[in-house]
Design a protein around this nucleic acid. Sequence first.
DNA 1: TCCTACGTTGGACTTTGTCTAAGTCAAATG
DNA 2: CATTTGACTTAGACAAAGTCCAACGTAGGA
Lengths: 138, 138
Amino acid sequence: MSDLLERLRGRGWRMTAQRRVVAEVLDGEHVHMTADEVHARAVTKLPEISRATVYNTLGELVTLGEVIEVTTDRRAKRYDPNAHRPHHHLVCARCGAIRDVHPTGNPLADLPDAERFGFTVSDVEVTYRGLCPDCAGI
Amino acid sequence: MSDLLERLRGRGWRMTAQRRVVAEVLDGEHVHMTADEVHARAVTKLPEISRATVYNTLGELVTLGEVIEVTTDRRAKRYDPNAHRPHHHLVCARCGAIRDVHPTGNPLADLPDAERFGFTVSDVEVTYRGLCPDCAGI
DNA sequence: TCCTACGTTGGACTTTGTCTAAGTCAAATG
DNA sequence: CATTTGACTTAGACAAAGTCCAACGTAGGA
Ligand SMILES: [Mn+2]
Ligand SMILES: [Mn+2]
Ligand SMILES: [Zn+2]
Ligand SMILES: [Zn+2]
């Protein structure tokens, strides 16, 4: 994530305080923030940053392949800076906690030709659902 | 789907023209309509039916286990009357076409204990993405 | 037939995200 | 450095999907 700013520059993108702050906020393990959460944290470092710019920058990071959009529920999209290692997600149905998981096996191989209906299948998302330790105890 | 009305009655639910119409609309193969699409079709049979009632009834059918909510994108939820046979979905990234698919293998078995982080995992959704024959040709 | 609790309705409201016009500024240029 | 310019940022209007509510209507039991 730290050389992200270089890559952006390499693409001829202008470096701004806003983009730097959004990139800084998106860092860590099992980070899956909504756009508004990113904005809330960005504001603590750069009070004037607007919601629109956060949306714009997140969209650019997704296009760049530095961040992945994750949709685990019908609420807000989540932005996942762990774009380097392919993984799937385990979601608590009650509190919404999200963990990265790395299942064995290849789900793409599990889809026979007869079940592809002529589609060119390029990607697969797997979402495991259940209750986290905290929520299961209640 | 035809005995749905019986089951509803068995649960002590009042039978109304609105609920009957929503149940009728939700029938067929590879049907994955949004709430507004269900409403649009329901209106042709019962012009006075309101959006709120469609949402209410769909929610009730989901609770009853007669219909499954499918979220393939961050647009509208889709309602799937094929709740009887477990299946997953294949989605065209361009036009949004949805097909039911039945992959081999069990993704739940592919998630080792060490990757469960103490969660009680109860369900898994798999979404295959790609291009349908029409969209791949363009 | 009458009652009433449950179902329905329209509209206001919320959440999430997009769009735009006007202002600002990074960085190329000399 | 100072200038210049088009890409970037901003506030706020707008849109789509869904929820909520108070008033009204009716299914089905007494
Ligand atoms: Mn992740
Ligand atoms: Mn389906
Ligand atoms: Zn939880
Ligand atoms: Zn298509």
